[in-house]
Simulated scan of single mutants.
Amino acid sequence: MVNGMWKKCNWRDFMKVCIVAMTGLYPLDIGGPAPVAYFLAKELNRNGIDVMMFIRADSEKNLKFKNTEEIKELKRTEIIPIDVTYNAKTFLNIQSLIYKVLEANKRFKEILKDVDVIFYNSPPVDVVLCFPFISKQSSKKQVFALHGGLFYESKNLVGKLLMQLQKNWFDKVVAVSAFSRDIALKFGFSRDKIEIISNGIDLDPIRAAEPFNLLGCPKILHVGRLAQIKGVDTLLKAFSIIIKNFPEAHLYLVGDGPERSNLEKLSDSLGIMGNTHFEGFIPPGKDVFRYYKSCDLFVMPSHKETFGITLLEAMASKIPVIVADIDGGPRELIKNGENGFLFPVGDYKILAEKIIEVFENKNLMEKFVSENYSLIEDRYTWRKIILKYMALFKTLERKN
């Protein structure tokens, strides 16, 4: 179906897309933007489109990145690494940083003549901050994807100021949800430039994943950063209630972050440390999918999510889901009582009630699983999502 639509769209004259992905490298890093850049490149390649992808990585990480099985699949993607790390030492050596900016600009100008559309998968406010201006001077079409971070979580005031200066240079803005669109509007992006294109997932590796033999019955899973905005403390408090009803229950937390130490202390004070497993960071991919396949329930207690790829992964893995009732992906994907449960943000008592209700009602669990898997197959695979990107890029290419 995709190839048929591709031929209809007359993409033979469409030569290259440049993806600028300076936040996260799939499959080495976790987080929403990273897999979007990877799967966008993969699907464009699959449909005969060449891609050039700028990434931020030192030589060691770039080598590791290029040697992953996933990246080896990108037969028509050229990876262009920019070796820069942001820390105090970087900004003390401002001369070196300026040199790297100039080198990045030089390489970008070299490839720009062969590129039809530039897609920014992260805010161009770092070493690539000149790219939008250079592209505008060359009359190239530019698309910016708003995933969230900088616009509601980050305290990077300089980055926000740079985005204010650049925002009128983008021809289109991709919002991953209605919530993401509202953030874009509030920031000052023009409504007529915004297109909602959700994140997607690849079903094949999820289907192929085999479960681990994990302790616990039942087993509860959370996948994500251990940061305050993810609300993991709410899940821990709820779990302290759950094990009174289900003494053999175990909780698995896949991910790492600045709150890990505090959360471990909280687990200890709640008396649940023996049943709680801090699994640490696990690169996105088959091992993470094995956790989904091994557990009985996925919980997303976040305070904010522009979309939530881990929620899609859980739904595709055929386990029931319970999510905080927040704008963005969770509220747009989950209809309370129909394909999952919503609970008020931070209300661990109601979360515990919902978890118990799911575990005590097998028919309800099966209903949630069936509804969600059908939803994923119908609307959220990358082979469906890429059609929207292709149509968007084609519209811009016509205007070039």
Rank of each mutant, 00 (worst) to 15 (best):
W11H: 06
G148L: 04
K109G: 00
P284K: 00
G24W: 03
P124L: 01
K186N: 15
P320V: 13
E153P: 10
S139D: 15
G31D: 12
L40E: 03
D204F: 11
I111Y: 11
A175T: 01
K237Q: 13
G280H: 08
N372A: 04
P247I: 15
R225C: 02
V17L: 03
P218T: 06
I242W: 05
E353C: 07
N245R: 11
T77S: 07
G340N: 07
L311P: 01
P284W: 01
S374V: 08
I272W: 02
V158W: 14
S180L: 04
G159Y: 04
S294D: 10
P35H: 02
E248I: 07
I206E: 02
L236H: 04
P33F: 02
P344F: 13
G200M: 08
I98E: 10
I334M: 09
I326Q: 05
N245L: 02
Y152T: 09
A175W: 06
I197T: 01
S294G: 12
V345Y: 09
E195T: 12
Y389N: 05
S177H: 08
E371C: 11
E338H: 14
E110S: 12
K293Y: 11
N168S: 14
P301Y: 00
N168W: 04
L203F: 06
S135W: 02
H222E: 03
D204T: 07
N336Q: 11
S269R: 15
Q137R: 15
N62K: 13
F393M: 12
C217Y: 13
I30D: 05
E248H: 10
H222F: 15
K75C: 07
T90Y: 03
R76P: 00
E353T: 10
R331L: 12
I134V: 13
L129C: 10
F281M: 08
S261W: 05
I183A: 02
A104E: 05
